[in-house]
Design a protein around this nucleic acid. Sequence first.
RNA 1: GGAGAGGUGGCAGAGUGGUCGAAUGCAGUAGUCUUGAAAACUACCGUGCCGCAAGGUACCGUGGGUUCGAAUCCCACCCUCUCCGCCA
Length: 424
Amino acid sequence: MLDIRSIREDSESCQQRLKARGGDAWKLITEVLECDEQRRSGETEKQVLQQDRNRLSKEIGKMRSQGEDSAEVEAQVRGIGEQIKVIGEKTEKADSRQRELLLQIPNLPHEDCPEGADETANPEIRTWGEKATFEDFEAKDHLTLGGQLNLFDFELGAKISSSGFVVYTGAGARLQRALIQFLLDLHTREHGYKEVNPPVVVNRECMFGTGQLPKFEDDMYGIEDNAHFLIPTAEVPVTNLFRDTIQNGDDFPIKVTAATHCFRREAGAAGRENRGLIRMHQFDKVELVNVVHPDQSLAQLEVLTNEAEKVLQTLGLHYRIIELCTGDVGFSSTKTYDIEVWAPGQNEYLEVSSCSSFGDYQARRMKLRFKDENGKNRLCHTLNGSGTALPRLYVALLETYQQADGTIRLPEVLHPYFGAAEIG
RNA sequence: GGAGAGGUGGCAGAGUGGUCGAAUGCAGUAGUCUUGAAAACUACCGUGCCGCAAGGUACCGUGGGUUCGAAUCCCACCCUCUCCGCCA
């Protein structure tokens, strides 16, 4: 949620930043300001009346205790009560409309977020490693490899659930488990994360807190008449762990990681570009969440991105970092780096991590604050990034480390986790 | 799922219609005392909104209602705990 005060103070530049995203959200600002005006004048008016009512009510109490007749004053207060009700309803209406609008307005892209209309304008920031080459054979894709090695079964997934779900089998399931363990160990041992294992079913409040609601209800699996949802990412439960709290500034940066299943309807995404494991309705992901001091967030985004990159470096997988331009940054995000791993069998880069700073946007929605040096409550900044998503990491791993005979030679760090050096 | 109890400030715990935003204790902050610390004592010590400020106003699980006035009464919902049932 944007700060109504800063909208009030400089609606012009606020609209400019929203326009940089594309879309129509900037048009809502005018109505927000109207509501704000009504809300504040109504509130002031109401308070004056409440003040009168409180004063007179106390007098009634006094009069009665002294045995005086208070009927006249009572009638007067009754009249004030009516007025309060009328003005209160009007104010309440403006207030809830204002809130409704604010919840629909995305975050402002950061000043140093590159301008651009869509993903084609996303600049490449850096790359690491080299594309894997295969001298004496043609690289197969993960579907072929996984099929030969019986690592996963899409038909079984469809049979017991529906398309978009997969059953990992045998060594394939074990590899998945090994990867999760490896990732959690990396982040907890080397990057100082605290591990949690949260629910994957959360209430609506959480979804408002991180920004999935109200705009993206259709992207999620709802249960019990959408009173609860399956999480699309661990960002939701983990960040909301801190909802409505006042943190101690000395604890910054707060770093929490979680491996969870993630569920996405991916409505309208079915199609050729998403064959195999690349876009699933259910997948595993290790998420990194940071809660930081406002002054730290930009620097911390670099740290967080480095931590996610470390995964690929450790596994020896070639990747590139893309920065999302103003037209492509996510709804709640103010600045985002995507990490894309090279998948030789696909002959393309796959997004395995999206590292974002949300500024105070999520914190304001979920009332996540800290006490600053002067004892004042201020909003924290939140960040998160995947560290990393599993299926695409899995794809890159199989396709990068395939051998001529279709077996997979695993990078050394995974040997103890997987319990073998090769699959096949 | 059934029966009962309960949800008040960081915690504990008073408060059953009127100076209650809320006693008291603990914790915390500042100070006095002390060579230092502890103890003792003194003061401060929830959150939001409106306002330049003074100040005002709202919040006692959530939402409604009754009343001149609600933490206190009524209704609904949510949550927690205990016992029983069921169960990985």
